Simulated assay, not measured.
Amino acid sequence: MHDLFAEPQEALAAGATVLRGHALPVAEALLAGVEQVAAAAPFRHMVTPGGFTMSVAMTNCGPAGWVSDRRGYRYDAIDPDGGRPWPAMPGAFRALATDAAQAAGYPGFVPDACLVNRYRPGDRLTLHQDRNERDYGHPIVSVSLGLPATFLFGGDRRTDRPRRIPLHHGDVVVWGGPSRLAFHGVAPMKDGTHPATGAIRINLTFRVAR
């Protein structure tokens, strides 16, 4: 468990916090876990219900995996590409997510879904809400690894102007409560390299899906 008095925290909105560097002590274990997950369920570019291919490559681990295709957005226990259950969530993933949620004021968070996103320079994630979960009473925990990114965090309407928050390797964003359905996204990634990941950014997003 981290020393909350030593760790910088930045309030984004009611119920939303950035934990600077929270994942740094376990970053190597997290990246090793990403390699393990991707070996069993390779990264892929999913298709939106409208037929557009997403620029950000994705995979999942845990009992529930987030998927998108022409039928819509949803969670599924089976990887549609491999026809097998998604890989188990590495212990380091679950422990970090539970610890970060606790640090942000959400005790008892035990995720059953982890969406792994891989960004390359030029990739972006448009503003959206996380609405496919059954119970909005649980927070979202988002972990940044590798290249820096600009996180966009808005309000409960798409037209609300989002804040632009720089995120670096090891930063964790947690949002829930009154901010649970805030629109959020990622601005186009800039060119660069990081010692831990090269020219990519990895994002782990933990949720309670079921």
Rank of each mutant, 00 (worst) to 15 (best):
A95V: 07
G83I: 01
G91C: 03
R118G: 00
D123W: 02
P121C: 05
G122Q: 05
R84T: 15
Y119S: 06
C114M: 11
E133I: 12
R74G: 09
L96G: 00
A113R: 06
Q129N: 06
R134C: 03
D130H: 05
V110I: 14
D79A: 12
D123M: 04
A100C: 11
G122F: 03
W86E: 04
R131Y: 05
G91N: 06
D112I: 06
P90V: 03
I78M: 13
Y73G: 09
P87K: 02
D79C: 13
R118E: 04
C114L: 05
Y73L: 14
Y73Q: 13
R134M: 07
R131C: 08
N132T: 04
R124V: 06
Y73H: 15
E133L: 12
D81T: 07
P107Y: 08
Y136F: 15
R134N: 06
A88P: 01
V116R: 11
P111N: 12
T98H: 15
P90F: 02
L125K: 05
N132R: 02
G137F: 10
P111R: 09
L125G: 02
A101L: 10
L125H: 03
D123Y: 03
D99R: 15
D81R: 10
P80M: 10
A88F: 03
Y75T: 07
L115Q: 01
G105I: 07
Y73T: 07
P107A: 07
L127H: 04
A97K: 03
P111T: 10
G91A: 14
R120W: 10
R84N: 12
A113W: 01
F93N: 13
G82Y: 04
W86K: 11
A104Y: 07
Y119Q: 09
L96R: 07
W86P: 02
R118D: 00
P87A: 02
Q129L: 09
G83C: 01
G122P: 01
Y136N: 13
T126F: 00
D76C: 13
I78Y: 09
P111Q: 10
P111S: 12
D76N: 15
T126H: 04
N117S: 15
P121Q: 08
G122C: 05
G108P: 01
Q129A: 11
Y75Q: 11
V110A: 15
N117G: 06
Y119G: 05
P80K: 11
G83F: 01
H128K: 06
A92I: 08
N132S: 10
V116K: 12
G91V: 05
A103Y: 00
P87W: 02
Y106K: 09
C114F: 01
G83T: 00
E133N: 12
C114N: 08
Y73M: 13
A88W: 03
I78E: 05
D79N: 14
Q102H: 14
R118Y: 00
P90T: 04
T126G: 11
G108L: 08
L127S: 08
Y106N: 10
A113E: 08
G72H: 09
A97T: 02
Q102T: 12
G105L: 06
P85S: 12
D76I: 08
F93K: 14
G83Q: 00
P90D: 05
R131L: 15
P107F: 07
R94M: 11
A97Q: 04
P90I: 03
D112W: 03
D123F: 03
G72C: 11
P80Q: 12
F93M: 15
D135W: 10
L115S: 02
